[in-house]
Amino acid sequence: MVRPAMSEEEHRPGPESDPSDDHQSFANAAWSIPSYVLSGMAVYGGIGWLLDHWLGTSALFPIGILVGLALALYLVYHRYGR
């Protein structure tokens, strides 16, 4: 019976946490995702496309897009997630 009380306690924001800070980082993260994701896919999709073009392969373009997507999400997580 202690657990629920404790988890409730954990969710209550402490007096030292500034709600405006939370608000800011959440809004920043939510609205910066599209440009980061587009950017990641453009950079690494672009590199993959160029390599495909030069090497005569066809798989590097989609791989680059996925890699860029993952890196962009990692970047958003690193900047705002913690």
């Binding site: 910066s32 440009s35 587009l38 950017s39 962009a72």
Partner: peptide
């Protein structure tokens, strides 16, 4: 090295676009 191009493109070009 891997992430800087994403940041640059995102902040300088894609942010005003989106």
């Amino acid at each position: 090295v891997i992430l800087a191009p994403i940041e640059l493109l995102s902040n300088i070009i894609l942010r005003p676009f989106t």
